Computed example of a mutant assay.
Amino acid sequence: MKTFLLLGANLGNRIQTLQRAVGLIAERVGSVTQQSSWYETAPWGVTDQPAYVNQVIAVETDLKPDALLEQTQAIEQQLGRVRFEKWGARLIDIDILYYDQEIVLTKSLTIPHPYLHQRRFTLVPLAEIAPNFEHPVLQKTSRELLAVCEDESEVVIFNF
């Protein structure tokens, strides 16, 4: 199955952490087939924190959605993630955006990601690598979702 994951970090060496996350995803989840550019982005939700670096990756996986969530959370833990505050600062965050065209609604998992269409920091890198991928609920492409997104937060290519 083709899945899209959003990676984000705003503490520590952000780029090194994202690179390590991509490597661990390739080892444990599946083949990483696409990677967006890195984007420096304003925090969302809780705004009094450092800027993030975000990236969207496409992964071909044989894992079912619950196993995918389990693996991404294990990778977050291995990289030092501690959950203190919703939308708070973090060493690493891995969100499942899409799992092919499937709709998953369980106690622990909602796919497509419920805030995907409201966040420029998600839509800009997603539209870079999958501009024509259609949201299975909203039935709009990544490019169309970005065009109507009301979030005005800054999202710029990160050069280091």
Rank of each mutant, 00 (worst) to 15 (best):
T106H: 01
T3W: 02
F133W: 14
A26I: 07
V22R: 04
P43M: 11
Q19D: 05
I157E: 14
H113R: 10
E134P: 00
D151A: 07
L109T: 04
E27W: 10
A42D: 14
P43N: 00
T3Q: 04
Q35L: 09
V124G: 02
Q71T: 14
Y115T: 15
K107S: 11
L18A: 00
V53I: 15
V56Y: 03
E144D: 13
G88L: 09
R119T: 07
V137R: 09
L123W: 00
T141A: 06
F133S: 04
R120P: 08
F121T: 11
L7C: 00
L5A: 02
D95P: 03
V32G: 05
Q118N: 08
G80D: 01
E85V: 15
A127S: 05
E150G: 15
A21G: 13
M1F: 08
H113W: 07
F160P: 13
G80N: 00
R83D: 07
I129D: 05
L123G: 00
I57W: 01
G88M: 06
T47C: 12
F4E: 02
E134Q: 10
C149G: 12
L146D: 02
A42W: 15
L97F: 09
I75R: 01
P65I: 05
P50E: 08
D151L: 04
T141L: 02
K140P: 01
V124T: 15
F84L: 14
Q73K: 15
D48W: 00
A130L: 05
N13C: 13
N54K: 07
E70R: 12
V82E: 03
R119S: 04
L11A: 07
V148W: 13
V82I: 13
V59F: 07
S142Q: 10
R90W: 07
V59Y: 13
K107W: 15
T41I: 04
I75S: 11
A147L: 08
S108N: 15
Y99I: 12
Y115N: 11
G45E: 03
V53N: 10
Q34H: 08
F158K: 02
A58K: 01
Y39M: 08
Q34L: 15
N54A: 01
L24P: 02
F133P: 03
G30N: 05
L18Q: 00
R20I: 00
L123R: 00
F158W: 02
F4I: 05
V155M: 07
E40P: 13
L105H: 14
T110N: 06
G45C: 09
R143M: 04
P136L: 14
Q71A: 14
Q16D: 06
L91A: 12
E154Q: 13
R143F: 03
E27G: 11
A130G: 13
L105M: 12
A67M: 11
A89L: 10
L63F: 14
L145E: 07
F4G: 02
A9P: 13
Y39A: 06
P43A: 06
V59I: 06
V56G: 02
G23R: 08
T47P: 13
R20Y: 01
L79Y: 09
Q139F: 14
L6V: 01
L126K: 02
E154A: 07
E76R: 05
V82N: 00
L145H: 01
V56D: 00
A51N: 15
E102K: 06
L7H: 04
Y115W: 10
G30P: 09
W87T: 03
Q118I: 01
L63E: 07
